[in-house]
Design a protein around this nucleic acid. Structure first.
Length: 824
RNA sequence: GCCGAAAUGGCGGAAUUGGCAGACGCGCCGGACUCAAAAUCCGGUCUGGCUCACACCAGGUGCCGGUUCGACCCCGGCUUUCGGCACCA
């Protein structure tokens, strides 16, 4: 009979729901396992194959753990704030709340068809005031500790639309995606979270967590800790000082100019009148460039002199001040001391503008008079450096720092590439910032009792001008909680990464009202044991969540330093070579596949396609393979209807009492079990399924030749191995076999019978002079002589040895014999 | 540009992590069953040479080089593709 997924799958989904099989008992934290997938952004494109590729296999792993006896908590929720809903509102007039709730309803129905064990009690959505209230509360706690502050920072500004654009809305040529006009960088006062205060802890604690090394590396590089010195240069004829950060204080004598970022506040003050027109023009040009363009190492260097000079504190030398767009205001102090002899970027800049290049570090084995072809950026011996001459540049770093400290012109300094987290967004669909600006008292954080500040519903979405909140007088005008006078609210909302920085804690009790989350539960259930999501979140989301978790630990709200103990990235399923997204218009809808093959076959196919962590370009060729496999398994159950009752299986069998086909089947089942267990543990679903397919091939050969109760034994094991991979199918099989309970109602032992795994002979590869010449089958653990005898008595191998002189023999027990010969 | 990955038959991929390259599946070819089709089952399928055939020989894991008795795996240098680069989430 055909396996009818369209009938069987809804039947089990209803059964699971009715019996509440996936409701986690949160009051039993012994053997707890918190398994989490990154929650979904509910866009209008709904679930695509990429989502399935995340949720299906992740659920398979969680089910495997549940069968192993863990008390698994697997929640699901909605990352419901964000830009696309607001863009949709501008385009269609449909309110973001309306479109978002509609999308969530649609997605919820789709999610149900995957058949995951999501605990529906835990569902949450971040656009609910009961959720975002606690973003505001979190903001206030950060504010109290001095970790939320305001400063000026640039935004993308479309001069034509008169509106702020997201990076995504700026095309690669620097124009607005809506109107095609140029986009400029405009400074606005915005809120920041001081993540840089946590930089060292974020770096050091990486060793506490079981994360992919590639991800830890990305985070380390993102934080970008570097040690060096801060050097203070005084501006000639002025009280102004210019501070620079350098990792190479040993090259200080080689400074021939100083460069400021064009948008540096000192540029205005330091530019001499006769240089002003050129400088202003250059500053304006720079506003059109993105940061990525500016950091390009192949772009030709540009810049302009200011006409001012600074004094190098180490030698009293007077050097010019330039501005250049390769210097970024956001890194270090926004100024660099330029040492063209020993820095590639400074070298190029100096060549372009004919500035002097001085050698102060001598490369070993070269002469001090050799001309520079390129900058020498490695360690060497200090020269042209006054009293430091002859010192190694490595020791020189410390020596120069000590000298700077002595003369009060600098100090040792650690610098990070990591910048503070800008959380202000000039948009409507997000969490309002709980601060008002009073005519008298200035910046005033709201008292906690006034939370939440809710989003007004009656706003107008327009393409041009200010954000909807700023135009909403009823929202903007309020009273100061301090003096009772007139005050204005902050018109901005928070970055949605704030929402996703703590949602995993809220899942345990999403309706909790007495605090951000229910610590009675989170104390036992946090941290998350397994977190599964895409590599695109390697840095930002995962770094922000770690930061907020650490801050919550400092508040005493969580007890562990890290939120996610183990992390796995599923691969990206691309289509036509790019990540699936609505904006790219290349999403692949899974529904037709579910309709045709059923959810289990589709899930099996996604897992069988390749390694979970790899992903790849979408193709449905091959899904028939998993369909056939599912049908075979179903047929197998059908041909054994009721056997669980009629032919009871033993727990294990003694090989000595089995016939040859029985031995073969028993060994195969147990070997598969061992392999399966290992592969499932490590989320290698593709090879776990391949092992089951191999077993299926063996069974079609030998199962019918086995005694009845051994057949039952086999089917019982097979059904349990299928259960996490194709849960509906396995439940149906178990029912046909005569089982009365759900497979997921009680744990099951995946341990193979060790006696069935032992082998008495092994096939060893034989090479002659490194080339494969044949194999010999010998008793396990045979010594070199035995294998050698076997090899030389095989004429196919012997013909390559005979007549030649054996020079050397390499032998690895149970693996290989390599006979090195010299041609006679 | 910078940071992080990936590359193996016609296709998706496997290889106990330095020890028989191509498991498993798709596709394709041939056969069985059938009035026919679907479904199912059996056999074959890296490339080239040589053979009626079996056998045998040679080459082969993106490209160039290296280490090693032995390299898909380790090292150096490239190429191409993908993810991220702080306002997509």
């Amino acid at each position: 009979m055909r396996y009818k997924a369209s009938e069987i799958e809804p039947k089990w989904q209803k059964f699971w729901e009715d019996k509440g099989i996936y409701k986690t008992n949160l009051n039993a934290p012994e053997k707890k396992l918190y398994s989490l997938v990154m929650f979904i952004y509910p866009s209008g494109a709904k679930l695509h194959c990429g989502h399935w590729y995340n949720y299906g296999p992740a659920d398979t792993w969680a089910r495997f753990k549940k069968l192993q006896g863990y008390n698994v908590f697997e929640p699901f929720g909605y990352d419901a704030f964000g830009l696309p809903a607001e863009n949709y509102a501008i385009k269609t007039g449909v309110h973001p709340m309306e479109s978002t709730l509609k999308n969530i309803d649609d997605i919820r129905a789709q999610i149900r068809r995957i058949g995951c064990m999501y605990d529906t009690n835990s569902e949450l959505m971040t656009c609910d005031p009961a959720y975002y209230k606690w973003n505001q509360w979190l903001f206030l706690q950060l504010y109290k500790k001095g970790l939320a502050y305001r400063k000026k920072s640039p935004v993308n500004w479309c001069t034509s639309c008169q509106t702020v654009l997201a990076n995504e809305q700026v095309l690669s040529d620097g124009s607005c995606e809506r109107c095609g006009n140029p986009v400029v960088q405009k400074n606005l006062v915005q809120w920041f979270f001081k993540i840089t205060d946590y930089a060292d802890r974020l770096l050091d604690d990486l060793h506490l967590i079981d994360w992919p090394e590639e991800t830890k590396t990305k985070q380390r590089n993102w934080i970008g800790k570097s040690t060096g010195a801060e050097v203070v240069f005084s501006v000639e004829g002025s009280d102004e000082k210019i501070k620079v950060f350098t990792t190479r204080p040993d090259t200080l004598f080689g400074v021939t100019y100083v460069t400021l970022a064009p948008e540096h506040p000192l540029v205005e003050k330091l530019t001499k009148p006769e240089f002003k027109p050129a400088v202003d023009k250059y500053v304006e040009q720079t506003a059109y460039l993105t940061e990525i363009d500016r950091q390009s190492t192949t772009k030709e260097k540009t810049g302009a002199p200011t006409g001012s000079f600074v004094i190098n504190p180490i030698n009293g030398e007077k050097v010019p001040i330039w501005i250049g767009d390769y210097v970024l205001l956001t890194y270090g102090t926004g100024c660099v001391m330029a040492v063209p002899g020993h820095d590639e970027r400074d070298f190029e800049f100096a060549k372009k503008f004919d500035l002097p290049i001085r050698k102060v570090i001598l490369q070993d084995g070269t002469s001090i008079d050799d001309e520079f072809e390129v900058a020498f950026t490695e360690a060497g011996t200090m020269v042209n450096s006054g009293k430091f001459d002859g010192m190694s540049s490595v020791a020189g770093k410390q020596a120069v720092i000590e000298e700077l400290e002595r003369i009060g012109a600098g100090k040792a300094k650690v610098n990070y590439r990591l910048r503070d987290w800008l959380i202000s967004r000039q948009r409507y669909w997000g969490t309002p910032i709980p601060v008002v600006y009073c005519d008298k008292c200035g910046e005033v954080p709201l008292p906690e009792e006034q939370l939440p500040v809710t989003l007004p519903k009656d706003v107008e979405f327009k393409l041009q001008g200010d954000s909807p909140l700023k135009r909403h007088a009823g929202f903007m005008n309020t009273t100061c909680p301090k003096c009772g006078g007139h005050a204005e609210r902050d018109p901005d909302t928070m970055d949605t990464f704030v929402d996703s920085s703590w949602y995993y804690l809220r899942f345990l009790d999403p309706k909790y009202e007495k605090g951000m989350f229910n610590t009675a539960l989170t104390d036992n259930w946090s941290p998350v044991d397994m977190y599964i999501g895409g590599r695109e979140h390697s840095v930002m989301h995962l770094l922000y969540a770690r930061f907020i978790h650490k801050f919550l630990m400092d508040l005493g709200l969580v007890k562990t330093p890290e939120p996610f103990m183990k992390l796995v990235h599923q691969g990206t399923i691309t289509n036509l070579g790019a990540k699936m997204s609505k904006s790219r218009g290349n999403v692949v809808n899974p529904e037709p596949y579910i309709d045709k093959y059923g959810s289990d076959v589709f899930r099996l196919y996604l897992m069988f396609m390749g390694p979970f962590e790899l992903g790849g370009d979408w193709s449905d060729s091959g899904i028939t393979g998993t369909e056939r496999f599912a049908q075979k398994m179903y047929d197998l159950a059908q041909s054994h209807t009721g056997w669980l009752k009629n032919h009871k299986a033993a727990d294990k069998y003694d090989l000595n009492h089995l016939s040859e086909p029985e031995k073969s089947v028993y060994r195969y089942v147990n070997r598969t079990l061992a392999k399966y267990q290992h592969e499932m543990e490590h989320l290698k679903f593709n090879t776990a399924i391949a092992a089951l397919m191999e077993l299926s091939n063996e069974l079609s050969k030998n199962l019918n030749a086995c005694r009845a109760d051994l057949q039952t034994y086999t089917l019982q094991v097979v059904t349990h191995m299928i259960a996490p991979l194709a849960p509906h199918l396995a439940e149906e099989m178990a029912e046909i076999l005569g089982r009365e309970k759900s497979l997921f109602e009680e744990p099951w032992q995946f341990e193979p019978d060790p006696a069935a795994l032992t082998v008495d002979s092994v096939t060893i590869a034989v090479q002659v002079s490194g080339k494969m010449r044949g194999t010999v089958t010998v008793p396990v653990d045979s010594d070199q002589d035995t294998v050698m005898n076997g090899a030389t008595s095989d004429p196919k191998i012997a013909k390559f040895i005979d007549g030649n002189q054996v020079v050397k023999v390499i032998f690895v027990k149970n693996k290989i014999l390599n006979v090195i010969v010299k041609q006679a």
